[in-house]
Design a protein around this nucleic acid. Structure first.
Lengths: 365, 365
DNA sequence: CACAAGTGGGTAAGCGCTTTCTACTCGGGG
DNA sequence: CCCCGAGTAGAAAGCGCTTACCCACTTGTG
């Protein structure tokens, strides 16, 4: 009784009387076994030639290479991963590719990944915590060798615990993870200095003569938003501004969020002299709202954002913001996850946030 | 020699009496075999419960689920793919995540992919044809069930043939591919009507009274650029404008490209009344160049772009462009690649390009 | 009450690779 | 002349999982 093992090509040994080149083509990808058969060597030898794991003598080596070429053989990466017990894929979880904040970070990650000849699994959560969790699972399932999660963390305790639990499982299985924005998940972390950046921004704005501020903040539970707001308050206090009458409006962390909050602000009555949108995307929305309401920036109101995203370059008036090296942050996170030895304790890299004053914030007379 | 291999649970094969604290934990992920052992059932049963491939009776079913939960089992997706002979990953090849044109398309693709509970491999070529080829190989290697390639195709014959060859191999192995921008690769295609869009744009601009134009075009070999230029020329001719003195400058297909071409244009002497940048990213660069040279848009020169990318919303003056439903194009490509039966002949979907006149192009007196 | 059809469990044969182990051929030193 | 590596090929045992196949056991039916 012939077992399939003895017929490496996967074709029937019996039916295939003329086992030569005219053999019936199986459908689907070409197998290593077919290459080996074509070259007249064993499976092991073919494997060794193609993956270069051991030297193979010249008569054989050339034949295998030729056969692979001729048959257009492409190794099955999944099978290789299973056999080797190690994959060469990296997971990247972001909120949304369409948001410049995330695409910049993704760009930085991609560069690092490409340098190492790995591939990346991209998943976007659209700010849904359940999807986030689900994706971490998926990534674990695919045994990604490194996992990078970026996107503002929340104060949602239940979710954070679940996530930490999941990441622990991932780490236990030998995976490396890096989170951008928060370092309380037991993984490596790249942490932008949101609080001190916002503090510095408040100081600069006060020095321009502003005293009456409004903040367009993100959802209450968002850490990034909370930290920046906190820093901003501290900065104001330090400059002697009474924080009691600081207007704080909470809304979505998006362009639309910024737009509608600004509209609210306009409708609410006398504008403050300066508005701080907690991130640039919201600032752009606010700018649009101001423009369509006939409120001039910076003549009627000054406007500042945070992140210094790329599209800011083309906006008039140029927007004051707090610069974060987004691509570099992505790259850094990738490095942490990729270049650290598995058993090392997790590292946290702080990223400086630098105030950049531009035309959207004017000096008060 | 490790005996642990022969006993997947890492515990005694018989009763679990010796288990407990002394159990030797293997490192790495939890295996299905461990779950099965923990639940006291066979590997097959555990597999059936977890993947739901066959009904399993209640005493066992519950035990397996509990064991999986307790041990935090996560199936090895790679091994599943190998065993099942089918993967659930989709490949997406773009030029650059940082370019809004591509990130929009990617957004559309992602949505479709997520709806189907698949994952995506993202690769960016940075406009390097060799990398493109390489990535197609990689994707083949990973046996992605669908592959979406987007990014302007070139006239480079050698490369196109290699690519077509590679894609043929991919298709032969049962893969589905869709290309955005060109339909000559034997795959499904989503083809924006670049030529007719540019033609319509030319007509509208002429109707605004413009006669003297300059085109900031991309690299000569780029099909997208070539088609748009051709359409623009046709449109001008149709409106009775002599194409002979149309200024055409070739440069990079990027913001910097647009910026330096515009600078060249300014330096070269008297400006035409209207400049057509072959895509929006270049238009934004041109706008910046004009601004810093003190050339007012649209007072001194009108400016139009193509694609209608998202960041255009925040630019002043609002930019005239030719709208392409980018996200939808990505979604459409994903659908073609994912919902078509393998043996069907490849389809080409044409995408209408709609002129949108805005403030950057003025009517001449 | 024998018999076909239907359930649900285990055994083991795969999936397409890698890698260990074994076997064999050579060239030299004792 | 034999024995000992060195070097290289092949057989086969994995990798972690799915599933065909088999069998013991219900049920329902004539």
């Amino acid at each position: 009784m012939t077992t399939a093992r003895e017929d490496p090509t996967g074709r029937g040994a019996e039916q295939d009387r003329a086992a030569g080149p005219t053999a019936v083509r199986r459908s689907g990808p070409v197998l290593l076994a077919e290459v080996a058969a074509h070259a007249g060597v064993s499976l092991a030898t073919a494997s060794r030639v193609l993956s270069g794991s051991r030297s193979v003598g010249e008569p054989h080596r050339g034949r295998v290479l030729a056969a692979a070429q001729e048959l257009r053989y492409t190794p099955n990466a999944q099978a290789q991963a299973v056999a080797r017990g190690a994959s060469n894929v990296v997971g990247l979880i972001i909120h949304d590719v369409l948001d410049p904040y995330f695409s910049s970070i993704a760009g930085g990650v991609m560069r690092q990944v490409e340098e190492r000849e790995l591939v990346v699994f991209l998943a976007s959560t659209h700010s849904d915590v359940d999807r986030e969790l689900e994706f971490v699972q998926t990534m674990r399932s695919h045994r990604v060798r490194a996992l990078i999660i970026c996107g503002s963390r929340t104060t949602d305790r239940v979710h954070n615990e679940r996530l930490a639990h999941e990441l622990e499982g991932y780490a236990a299985a030998g995976g490396q993870a890096a989170v951008i924005s928060q370092d309380r998940l037991g993984t490596h972390a790249v942490v932008p200095q949101n609080r001190s950046g916002a503090r510095a921004l408040a100081r600069e704005l006060c020095r321009l003569g502003h005293r009456r501020f409004a903040v367009l903040a993100g959802p209450r539970g968002l850490l990034t938003s909370r930290d920046r707001l906190m820093g901003f308050r501290e900065g104001l206090t330090a400059e002697g501004v009474d924080v009691a009458d600081l207007q704080v409006l909470h809304g979505e962390f998006t362009r639309e969020g910024g737009e509608s909050l600004a509209a609210e602000l306009i409708a609410a009555g006398p504008l403050p002299t300066c508005v701080f949108a907690i991130n640039d995307v919201m600032a752009l929305g606010a700018l649009a709202a101001f423009r369509s309401a006939g409120v001039r920036v910076p003549e009627d109101v000054s406007l500042a954002g945070f992140d210094d995203i790329a599209p800011l370059r083309d906006v008039v008036p140029s927007l004051t913001s707090v610069h974060l090296p987004l691509e570099e942050m992505g790259a850094r996170a990738a490095q942490l996850a990729l270049d650290t030895e598995p058993q090392t304790t997790s590292q946290a890299v702080k990223v400086h946030a630098e105030v950049v004053l531009r035309d959207s914030t004017r000096r008060l007379a």
